[in-house]
Design a protein around this nucleic acid. Structure first.
Lengths: 192, 192
DNA sequence: ATCATTCCTTAACATAGGTTAATGCACAGC
DNA sequence: GCTGTGCATTAACCTATGTTAAGGAATGAT
């Protein structure tokens, strides 16, 4: 479980030039969250972007008193409320650490101010949105076209090892089923 | 059923200054699609943005030979493959006219070239993405938290009159159920 | 060691929704 | 006027999943 570095992830997404990197490094600050702490609560306004170095974060929304997990973030991802960030509106979703986490944070407005100076950073931002959008699109398609068993298989493939680190009811919520149903699926899957 | 105008919709989304409007008007061209024609097919690359003046467009994706409707566009909306547009990759989804349509089209790359000159256009673009993102988010939440009957009620509320203009199997696909199930829901709903 | 808490599993039952197939209606082409 | 085609409905049956409830394993506090 090596810790991914922010700038190696950025390079892989969309290369930025050394001066842009310098300016961006000046914005970043390390930060930690304890297990169960919130990176962001529904209703909060945000200006912070996070890059996850270690730990697991879930994103969920609330509806009629129930929580629904939308996705998980593992090291190397950006557990960041893009919609709230670009709109300036309060977030509709919450981000919670499921284990102790260490992140790198930077201000989105400060980051955006660099766009004028460094075109490559704006390109990077679009690229991040695009990747998130496509990921969301893929997940939507999965949710509609596949049954819970396939979705569970897919989850295990996409997040190797994650199953061991978080309670199953979070996985069930992510899959759109009850923990009971997940338990049934698991028992079928592992007995046959 | 008055025809919405591109620039009144833009003004309502995010005001742009008169010179930006002039430059943008120069990019636009009217265009029509016949019923069942495709605005965009899965696999195509795109540079065109569309604004729908009249008619109905569906967006769908293919999975194992089946079509799944993601959403409908009605006049005043932008039936545009944002992901493919910003990524430059072939589109994963298709856009099809369900009735005769008239649209206004403009080139995304030409539009983007105006960003340097007119900040307000870039703001508009982000605003459009944001609105689409939020709409998608709301729909996701509905799909997960509500059963098909509520989703059908919601559909009728969000798209008043649309039900009369398109076949029910398209609506069923949008709701994530079979036409048979939609028929059952309708008969329950309208008999009681 | 005991007890409470948290979480997973299992069972019994109820419901939503899928599948297949038959029926009926409306409209287009001849 | 027929007839085919596309679409909506209905019925019979089946499966996936939800609900409620109970029990058991692991963990942590006292």
């Amino acid at each position: 479980m090596e810790t991914p570095s922010l700038f190696s992830v950025i390079e892989a997404l969309s290369p930025i030039d050394p001066r842009a990197r310098k300016d961006m490094e000046a914005l970043t600050a390390p930060r930690t969250f304890k297990k169960n702490e919130y990176l962001l609560c529904e209703g909060d306004r945000v200006d912070d972007c996070f890059f996850l170095e270690e730990g697991v974060v879930r994103v969920f929304f609330n509806s009629d008193g129930n929580e629904y997990n939308k996705t998980f973030f593992v090291p190397g991802m950006f557990p960041t409320a893009i919609t709230a960030l670009i709109s300036g509106n309060p977030s509709l979703i919450s981000f919670q650490a499921l284990t102790d986490c260490s992140v790198i944070s930077f201000s989105y407005s400060a980051f955006k101010n660099l766009f004028g100076k460094h075109r490559s950073l704006e390109t990077l931002m679009l690229r991040i949105m695009e990747v998130e959008w496509i990921k969301k699109e893929r997940h939507d398609i999965l949710m509609v076209t596949e049954d819970a068993t396939s979705r569970y298989r897919e989850f295990r493939k996409n997040y190797p090892g994650l199953e061991q680190q978080i309670p199953q009811y979070h996985i069930a919520s992510y899959l759109g089923i009850t923990p009971i149903q997940l338990s049934r699926i698991r028992s079928r899957l592992f007995s046959e």
